[in-house]
Design a protein around this nucleic acid. Structure first.
Lengths: 259, 259
DNA sequence: AATTCTGTTCCATTATGTGGAACATTTTGT
DNA sequence: ACAAAATGTTCCACATAATGGAACAGAATT
């Protein structure tokens, strides 16, 4: 008799509450949560209480507001180390950063969305969660398209259904068919581009990180602005980028079971 | 009749499972979780299943292992932006980094533990285990002591009970009384030190970030190695560090309700 | 002092989660 | 090849734990 999306059980509901609070930019009051919530007041109240004394939410007594708690940050750190490519890719990215002196991204795909896992900034160094954990669309980012191009057909199809095909800029690809044929192109060359498709003035080249069966487990990209570079000039880095992707892939392969 | 620590309800149990998986460095099998778990097989099984199809856990079909899922990373990103000092402190840290050219940390305290929120790396990167989401002890880190020194007495007492007083190095303070008197010293000067108390060869100076009532809401530290610096030489940065802390405090104060 | 808005508690009802045990599947040993 | 052990999955009678309508309490507005 239940329906709401795909929410299983009580923990499903609790997590949904977290999600709801996550989309708010700033700490929220109970009533604000309630307003948007599917659940009745008393139920929501209990959920929020439970989450709070679990440290998943943080209650600010001053203002009576709730925000996502630090326990999440702590857990995420473990997640990041345990199931992302970041720890493996780290040294290779450092090297690539010094070689190219451009902004780099490491990303993986999660449910059709691009999830940025690590970043190297051209000018200022290391800024962790500012980018790690950030998500982006698949259909109009270099990393997104690179990964999509190297997914198993079944997974690709599923991921494509998750794309919004929102038109961020005038270059954004907004139809599934157009995207599909671009993906075919990408899978021939092993290189994806972002021609200001997500943000005006921002371009990038991206290469997939492949497992032994030739499926993408992530991607890296090299980003610049149209002021400083063109796609053509970025192409100078093609081999370095691809090489780094390959090295990460190899490292990931042999990283299984270090025990 | 229930007891286990302070686990409320089903979601409490679910979160406990996450925690348990977090402490494992690498992906784990179901049976490994079961071995350590308080819960009976069938119960645990259902919890893990629920968490998995919520994206809080990630199941690797290849090896039949579970790891913390990307949804956590995504949530943590929101948490970081929403309830940490990092977004506010960012620009000030950037400035401080260029001014001092040393390694910087921004940390907050969570349940007696130091939680690192952001970091700036010196040009010659000290390879240390610390980045956002990483936790550390309170009793033997600069940021930890800086924050403890400026907590409300009640909170401080509670936080002190959470300290392990583990002796990391020969300089580590290992008794509550010794720590307490150091905290008094710190609260007079507004500056805390780490004399290789957590890791041999690593020293730092730290300053608390205070709210309007003079309580710590976080701390920043400037770290170096005994090869390159001494506590004395680090003291040259005292004013710059304190100033930055004050600026962050002020920014935090006026950041409430940007609506 | 009356009205609204927000947050908290109560409690009978029932849906949800529980966990022992049986079953299925894979791995290990001889 | 066969037994034995370890691991993973499903079942179901049972009871705990979540539900939500409604009443209550506190602040904030008017």
């Amino acid at each position: 008799m239940s329906n709401h999306a795909a929410g299983d059980g009580t923990v499903g509901k609790a997590i949904a509450v977290l999600d709801q609070i996550a989309v708010c930019e700033r700490p929220v009051r109970f009533s604000e949560i309630l307003k948007e919530s599917l659940y009745p007041k008393a139920t929501l109240y209990r959920l929020v209480q439970t989450l709070t004394n679990q440290g998943m939410l943080n209650y600010d007594e001053e203002n009576g507001t709730y925000a996502l708690g630090f326990r999440l940050v702590k857990l995420a750190h473990s997640a990041w180390r345990q199931s992302s490519l970041a720890p493996i890719a780290r040294s290779f990215l450092d090297l690539l950063a010094t070689e190219t002196d451009e902004t780099l991204h490491l990303a993986q795909m999660n449910d059709g969305q691009v999830l940025y896992i690590d970043k190297r900034n051209a000018a200022s160094p290391v800024e962790m969660f500012s980018s790690a954990g950030k998500t982006g669309p698949g259909h109009c980012t270099g990393v997104g398209k690179a990964i999509l191009a190297y997914m198993a057909p079944k997974d690709q199809a599923k991921a494509l259904t998750r794309q919004s095909f929102f038109q961020y800029t005038k270059n954004t690809i907004i139809t599934e068919n157009a995207l599909k044929s671009e993906l075919v192109e990408i899978s021939k060359t092993g290189l994806a581009f972002d021609h200001e498709e997500h943000e005006a003035g921002i371009i990038c080249i991206a290469a997939p990180i492949l497992n032994s069966r030739g499926r993408a487990i992530g991607a890296i990209s090299l980003t610049s602005t149209t002021n400083r570079n063109s796609i053509q000039s970025l192409k100078a880095h093609t081999e370095t980028l691809k090489n780094t992707a390959m090295k990460i892939a190899k490292a990931a392969e042999s990283w299984q079971f270090p025990n």
